[in-house]
Design a protein around this nucleic acid. Structure first.
Lengths: 200, 200
DNA sequence: TTCATTTTGTGATTTAAGTCACACACTTCC
DNA sequence: GGAAGTGTGTGACTTAAATCACAAAATGAA
C-alpha cells in the first residue's frame, strides 16, 4: 500500500491542531521543515549512545523505547501511531540517549529536526505556542505513567493500561507491555488469565 | 526570620534564567504577575478536587503531592525549594486535580496565575521561550522518575534518589519518601540498614 | 523538663511476584 | 506444508517485599 505524503501531513496537522489552533501560514511553516520516513518492524530509529536531534510524529505503526539492564532489555516507553515521540532529555540537552527506540510494527513517521524547529520558534510565536501546548501534553502524559507506578499494583497497572490504551495489548508483544508495566511476562500472563475469568 | 520579596524574586530569576536567557524587559513582565506567599508545615496548597490555576516556584521549604488510595495517602511527588511546582494536568485542562499538595516544611513560594501567564505569553515571545524551556525540563524530570520505576528495583530506586536528591532524605519524612519510591516504610528502613553496612 | 505525638526501626509471618523449565501456539519464510 | 524461530502460557519452587505488631527514637508543645 502506498500512502501519499499529503495524507500523512494531514494527519499530523489534525494531531497538532488538537493542542493549539493555528493558521494556514503557520502550518506552511511547519510543513516546510517536515520530512516523511519509514521504518520496518525491528528497525532502530534512535540508537542508545547517539544524540537525538528530532521529534517524530507517528502516522502509522508504533515504537518502543528500551534500555539494557545487565543483558536484558527493559521497555521504558511504548508509543502508538498518532503520537509525537522523542527522547526529550537527549534532544533538549544534546547529550547521548540512554535508551534506544525501535519500531515494533512497520511504521511511517513525519520528522522535524531540532535545528529547523529552533529556527522556526524564533520566527513564529504561533509555532512556539503550538510547541508549548504539545510540551504541556507531554508533561501530563509522563506524569500519568509515573503516577501509575506509585498508585497501582501490577494487576491495577494492567487495568490502567487496558483503559488508557487497549490497542497496545493487541499491537505490541505482551513481553514488552509487561516490561513497561514493571513486571515479568509470566506475571502478566497470569494477570490476564485471572482478570479474564472475573470479567466473564 | 524575615525574607525580603526582592530576595525571593532574585532566586526565582536565577532559576528561570538557567533555562533560557532573557532581558530585563522580560523579567519586569514576569515580575509584574508574581505574588509571594507562605505555607506552614502541613498546610495544603492545592486540594484534591479543586482546579489548579497557578504555577509555584519554591523559594524555601518543600511540597509533597499525594492521592488517597483506600484510606491511606500515597505520595506521588516530592518537590524541594528551587523547583517549579504545579499539577500540569489540572492546570492545562482546567479539570479537578486528582492529588493534593501539602507543605512538608514551612515554605515560601512565588506564584504565577494561569490567566496572567496566558496573557503574558500572547504579549511576549521571549516569555513563551522561557516557558517552553521550563516545560522541556519538566518533561525530562517526569520521564526520569518514570524510568526509575521500570529500570530499578526498590534498593536501586533508593540509591537513585540518594544520587539525584540526597537532601530529600533529610528534609522529608522517610514514610513519604518510601511511598514515593513505591515501597513500604518498613522496607525503606531495611534498605537503609543494609546499604549503610556495605558503604562503611 | 516532661509528656504526648509522630516517626522510624525491627522481628515474625504471609503473600505475591520472580525465577526456572518446558510445553504449547503462532508466525514467516524456504 | 513443514521447519525454524518468536512469542505466550503454565507448573513447581524461591525470594523479597508486604503485613502485622510492637518497641525505640525523635519531635514538639505545655
Amino acid at each position: 500500500m502506498v500512502v501519499q505524503d499529503s495524507e500523512i501531513l494531514e494527519s499530523y496537522r489534525k494531531h497538532v491542531s488538537s493542542f493549539a489552533s493555528f493558521g494556514n501560514e503557520t502550518w506552511k511553516l511547519i510543513e516546510s521543515i517536515v520530512t516523511i520516513g519509514t521504518l520496518n518492524k525491528g528497525d532502530i530509529s534512535l540508537q542508545e549512545g547517539k544524540v537525538c536531534s528530532y521529534v517524530d510524529f507517528l502516522y502509522s505503526g508504533s515504537l518502543r523505547a528500551f534500555s539494557n539492564r545487565d543483558g536484558s532489555e527493559i521497555t521504558t516507553g511504548i508509543y502508538l501511531s498518532g503520537k509525537c515521540v522523542t527522547n526529550m532529555k537527549s534532544l533538549s540537552t544534546q547529550t547521548p540517549s540512554s535508551s534506544s527506540f525501535q519500531a515494533s510494527e512497520d511504521t511511517i513517521y513525519a520528522r522535524i529536526h531540532k535545528e529547523h524547529l529552533t529556527k522556526l520558534y524564533e520566527k513564529s510565536a504561533e509555532v512556539q505556542a503550538v510547541g508549548r501546548a504539545l510540551l504541556e501534553a507531554m508533561v501530563v502524559e509522563e506524569n500519568d505513567w509515573k503516577e501509575m507506578y506509585t498508585l497501582y499494583d501490577p494487576e491495577e497497572r494492567y487495568m490502567f493500561l487496558m483503559k488508557k490504551s487497549p490497542e497496545m495489548l493487541n499491537r505490541v508483544p505482551l513481553q514488552y507491555v509487561a516490561s513497561f508495566l514493571g513486571i515479568r511476562r509470566e506475571t502478566l500472563s497470569r494477570i490476564r488469565k485471572r482478570t479474564l475469568k472475573t470479567n466473564k
